[in-house]
Simulated assay, not measured.
Amino acid sequence: MAESFGADAALYDRARPRYPDALIGAVASSAPGPEVLDVGCGTGIAARQLQAAGCRVLGVEIDERMAAYARTTGVEVEVSPFETWNPAGRTFDALIAGMTWHWIDPATGPAKAAAVLRPGGRFAVFWYVLQPPADLGRAFADIYREVLPDSPISSPVAASPLGAYETFLDRAAEGLTATGAFTDLDRPTFPWSRDYTRDEWLDQLRTSGLAKPLADAGKLDTILARTAAAIDAVGGEFTLDSTAVALVATRR
């Protein structure tokens, strides 16, 4: 699934939310220098935000299609799984991963991060949590429950997903702790908001990790149509008041 997002890289880049300015600023200001490694950089969304904050960013990306798009936006990218990527002796002031660290091997990834970070370097992995208004979130969850009753995404978590991301944070923290190479582990959160039209939300859904399994099950078009109807029922647009969650640490 990690290699499925590049099917329409331009749509992905257009539809995916940007990260909160406060999160980007916290990463840039806490690193001891400007050299940042972006693991699973995708189309370069976080990388470009960090560049605008004064960082020099190198991306590592498994999908050549995503990497090719990122290069067109001014991001330097090397194509490789992070676990087998060759840093060629290079080290960095910060390592980030936006919406991607859950794809990384939980043992190999933290050890590799420790190897490429300079002493005092910052580790920062983060996810944005899409939290629709409560009534709309319940409507979305009902749609999944009716269309895919046996799927984990049909659980009540779909209506209030913040708790599900604790699993990602817990696993990342366990991996860092096991290396013995990191200190000052923390889990800051960053609120963010965005107004969505129906079509903007559907584009976001088309680029989500759910899109491929839904398409493979022959259910994507049904989910999109039902979701469109639910948004139309509340006026065709809504405000997403959400949270970005992070795990940050310092290389000893």
Rank of each mutant, 00 (worst) to 15 (best):
T239N: 12
W101A: 00
T177D: 01
A70L: 13
Q131L: 15
D142P: 10
G42D: 01
R194F: 07
K112F: 00
R251Y: 07
T207I: 11
K219G: 09
D241H: 15
T197E: 15
I231G: 15
A244R: 08
C41D: 00
L185D: 09
V245Y: 03
G120A: 09
S155G: 14
T250E: 05
I104Q: 00
R187I: 08
W101F: 00
A181M: 06
D241Y: 12
R252I: 14
A215V: 10
G44A: 10
E200L: 13
A159K: 03
A178L: 08
F82S: 00
G40S: 12
V147Y: 06
L176W: 00
T108V: 07
L58F: 00
L202P: 05
P149A: 03
I62D: 00
R251C: 02
G163L: 05
T250R: 15
T189G: 12
G109W: 01
G89L: 11
R187Q: 09
E64Q: 15
A7F: 08
N86G: 06
W192T: 10
L214E: 08
L185H: 04
P119Y: 01
L205N: 02
L205E: 09
A249P: 13
T222R: 12
A10M: 08
V36M: 02
L136N: 01
A88Q: 14
P188E: 09
D142M: 09
A97G: 07
P152L: 03
F140P: 04
E83L: 06
V157W: 10
R251A: 05
A233W: 04
V60C: 12
R56I: 07
I143T: 06
A94E: 01
A111E: 10
A164M: 12
L130C: 15
S208H: 04
M66F: 05
A141F: 11
Y12C: 01
A134E: 15
T43M: 04
V27Q: 05
D170Q: 12
P34A: 12
R252Y: 13
R194W: 11
G120P: 11
G40T: 12
E78P: 01
A124F: 03
S193G: 15
V248A: 04
V125K: 04
V36G: 07
K212Q: 15
A211L: 07
S80W: 03
R187T: 11
A124K: 02
F92A: 03
S155H: 11
K219S: 14
G180D: 06
L205V: 04
L23A: 13
A244P: 03
D150M: 04
T72L: 13
C41G: 05
Q204N: 15
P119N: 09
E61P: 13
A26M: 10
E200F: 03
A22I: 06
P81E: 01
R14Q: 14
G98Q: 12
Y128W: 10
N86H: 05
T227A: 15
A7H: 11
